[in-house]
Design a protein around this nucleic acid. Structure first.
Lengths: 215, 215
DNA sequence: CAGTGTGAAGGGGTTCACAGCG
DNA sequence: CGCTGTGAACCCCTTCACACTG
């Protein structure tokens, strides 16, 4: 089983694309499409077919020459490439609107992410239930992360609370953080931190629209 | 006033970075820091100082050699670069948890985005109030966009409803879309569409964590 | 012979290194 | 003298083109 790939050689840009491929493949599976070519995939994603094949090639040979890719097989392979064959224990810190939205996001569960804890600092939120989980006080975060071997913390608290939330998660031995608060966290050695910034997206749109108006 | 820049020559990667610079600068302003050097900015962002200077250089000369950048002046310039000196009329389509979270996001208003309409298909949501706006039935979206000169639609409906929502917005003459639904929209000529994918972020973390476990 | 897998070419973006300027 | 602004070098990523194979 020499299927272990040196993931450090995978271009950073490839990783989020794999996730997008996977989503389209799931959709094809639901439509009972058994096979796809890189060209068909490219059309559905408006991407380049060579790009898709190249992305796959970092991990192995998933297709059949002259034929294409078997959808279900490819889903399995790409899932494994992304580490989705493991079960990741996840907590959400900050049960406001955004935290709640993410907690309810089906896609998480379906891809091997197991939501096992909700945390908040507000005493009005602590104790309430969501999806069978009781919201806990955030002071207990570090202990919970340690005792339950939590892998990933999703931080959806306000910017000013985010550093403390991260600190507690890290103290408990968290491995990865997805931070939705508009503030820089880390870097912290040994912890993978991914910053997601919603307001940036609107500004990007603003940029390209203002460009048009200029012309 | 030859301050008009050909924005087509700005690298795509620069645009979201400008937004991040802006955020740090706003923070510096609140801390009453009058000046920064590219090096100091770089430390706060863990970025490269040359990168920052290069990014600025696509738009003009904003600094003083030997000294650095005046924070408030730089904020003004970068805001203009991003088109934030205009007021953009925005609607949110889909007033679930995510839509509500975005509607309440302060940063929008402060950066020139004016939320003027909320739309939903559920009769339980239509008619409710949020931030002084009454949620309207989504059937009226196209007319509303046209009559109120809406620039940007934020789509936060489920994946299956997103294509119809987009279609209505486009029918009304929308210029830009930020799509949070996990489904590809467009491309549509003349409409700038930005796809934001929350589940992708978790998968990226999964990828890099599984890589570590391999080693 | 259709479509994959991939070396090689090409392009875009980042970083370097220093000239230029206050 | 210090920090900006920027050509040039470098590097990563994308795209091309075709050898390869079922």
């Amino acid at each position: 089983m020499a299927n272990v790939v040196d993931k450090t050689k995978v271009p950073q840009a490839t990783v989020p694309r794999l996730a997008r491929y996977l989503r389209v493949l799931h959709k094809l599976e639901r439509e009972n499409v058994p096979k796809v070519s890189s060209k068909e995939l490219a059309e559905r994603l408006d991407a380049n077919a060579a790009q898709i094949r190249k992305d796959f090639s970092y991990f192995g040979e998933f297709g059949v020459r002259g034929v294409g890719y078997e959808v279900s097989y490819l889903i399995g392979e790409l899932s494994r490439c992304l580490g989705l064959d493991m079960e990741w224990n996840v907590v959400i810190v900050g049960v406001g609107k955004l935290g709640t939205a993410l907690a309810r996001y089906r896609a998480f569960r379906e891809e091997g992410f197991k939501l096992v804890g909700l945390f908040d600092s507000s005493r009005y939120v602590v104790g309430t239930e969501l999806d069978g989980l009781t919201v806990q006080p955030d002071k207990g975060l570090a202990a919970f992360v340690r005792e339950n071997k939590i892998d990933i913390a999703i931080i959806t608290v306000p910017a000013e609370s985010a550093p403390l939330a991260a600190e507690r998660a890290i103290e408990g031995g968290i491995k990865g953080i997805v931070n939705f608060a508009p503030v820089k966290l880390g870097p912290v050695p040994g912890v993978f931190i991914r910053q997601v910034d919603l307001s940036t997206e609107l500004m990007v749109v603003s940029f390209y629209l203002s460009q048009k108006q200029q012309a």
